[in-house]
Design a protein around this nucleic acid. Structure first.
Lengths: 131, 131, 131, 131
DNA sequence: GTGGTCTAGACCACA
DNA sequence: GTGGTCTAGACCACT
C-alpha cells in the first residue's frame, strides 16, 4: 500500500506534496500501472487534511495523465512511461545511498543538515554541468 | 560570494527559499560570522523577484537571530552556533556524496529521479528509526 | 474586452465552460499573447458564480500552458500556438456561416434546433471520414 | 437504427448526452412516433457505460413525455409535437451546412476550431437580437 | 488588491 | 460509497 507523508514545515502546499509523492512513486516503480491510490477519504484521515485538498491533488495528477479517477471504484495509476533504469543498478544506487546516509548520521548530522548537504551537492553538480 | 537560487517549480514560496538557503549556508559553513549577504537589490535582480520579497526574507532571518541588518551597510551573519561536525569528516561526506551523484548520473538518472531516490531513502531511514 | 457567458442548462460544469471559452478565444484569435483575462472577482460578479470556481478554471488554463497568473497583476495569455488559418479565409467562413444562420432562423428554427442540426452534420461528417 | 455517441471530453454527464441526443433526434425527425429506442443493455455495451446510467436517461425522457417504456418490449417514441419546418427546407438547410463544413475542413480547420467558430457565430447572433 | 491555497459542508453523477 | 463540482469564507504570498 502506498503511504503519503505531509511535512507541514516545508512550505510546500500539502496538495503539491501529494502530487510530488505520487510522481516519485511512479518514477521509482513503487506505483505501477493499474495500482489503486488510497481513497481520497482515507488519505484525508491519515494525513489529517481536508478531503478537498486530496481531491485537488488527484485531479492534478489526472490532468497530468498519470492516473485516472473512476467514480465508484477509486483512482488508478495509468501506464508508466517506462522504467528509467534497470532494477539492478537501481538497487545498487539505493544501497550506496543508504551506506552514505549511515555514515552521515554516525558523524552526528541531523536530517536538516543531511538535506542541506545533498541539495548543495546537487546544485554544485548542476553548476559544473553548465560551466 | 553567496549566490541565491530560486526554483519556481518547487511550490515553496520564494521568500522561504531564500531563508532556507541562508540557514543551510550557515549550517554547512558557507556563511560565517561577519559575512555580508548580497544586497537586497542585487538579489532582486539576479533571481528576478520583487525587492520586497527579498526584504521579507532578510527580515525573517533577522528575527531568527541569524543575521543583523545594519542600515546603510548591508546585512551581516551573526556568530554561528558552532559547527556540528569537523571540517575533515564534512569534506569526506561531501566527497562520498559527489561520487554517488556521479554514479547516479552515469546510470542515466536525471535530477528529478535523483531527488526522488534521496527523499525515499531519507524517509525509509526515518521510518526504521521510528520502528 | 473578453466576455464570459455561462449556460446553466447545458449540463457542462461552469468552470469548464470558462476554460472552453478561453481555449476557443485563443483558437479564433479573440485572445492574443499578452492579453489580460478579466479579473477573477470581475468574472465571479458578472456571471454570478463563486470566485473559487473562476479560480479553478484559470488554474486549469495555467496548467494547460495557455495563460499565466501573476499575483498582483492579473492573468495573462501566453504565446498563441500559431493561427490555424489566414484571417481572410477565416472571415470568409464566418460570413458563410452567418448567412446560413440567417436562412435557418428565417425558416423558423430556434437555437436548439440549429444546434441539433449542426452537431448532427458534424457527426455525420465524422462518420463518413471514418468509413 | 438510432445510434448514441458519448463524448467523454465534453464535460456533459453521459446520461444527459443520451437525453439530449434523443431530444435532437425527435426534433430533427430521425426519431418518429412508434420508433423503438435501442435496448438499455445494447446502449450500455456500444458506448461502454453502466446500464444504470442508460436507464437513468430513459427514465428522464419518459418523465419529459418524449418516450414510453413498455416492460418486456422496449422504449418507444411518443407522438412528436409537430415538425418545426417542412422536410424540403430542412434538407436544403442540411445541404447548405454540409457544403460549409466541407469548405471549413478544406481550409484546414479541425473539429474543435469548427465548433468554436459555430458557437461564436451563434453567440454573436444572439447578442445582436438582444441589442 | 491580485492570484493561490485551505477548510467546511453540500449536492450530484456514477458503479 | 466513490470521485467531481460548487459555495462560503478565511488566510497567505506577491506586486
Amino acid at each position: 500500500m502506498f503511504v503519503f507523508r505531509i511535512d507541514s514545515h516545508s512550505g510546500v502546499p500539502p496538495y503539491l506534496q501529494l502530487v510530488q509523492q505520487v510522481r516519485q512513486g511512479v518514477l521509482l516503480g513503487f506505483l505501477k500501472e493499474g495500482d489503486r491510490l488510497p481513497l481520497i477519504r482515507e488519505v484525508a484521515e491519515t494525513v489529517a487534511i481536508n478531503p478537498n485538498t486530496v481531491a485537488k491533488a488527484y485531479r492534478q495528477l489526472e490532468q497530468e495523465g498519470l492516473v485516472t479517477g473512476r467514480p465508484g471504484q477509486g483512482t488508478f495509476v495509468n501506464e508508466t512511461p517506462a522504467a528509467p533504469v534497470s532494477p539492478a543498478t537501481y538497487t545498487s544506487l539505493q544501497r550506496g545511498l543508504e551506506t552514505w546516509l549511515g555514515r552521515a548520521r554516525a558523524a552526528g548530522l541531523d536530517e536538516q543538515a543531511i538535506s542541506a548537504l545533498f541539495t548543495a551537492a546537487l546544485n554544485q553538480a548542476r553548476n559544473e554541468n553548465i560551466a
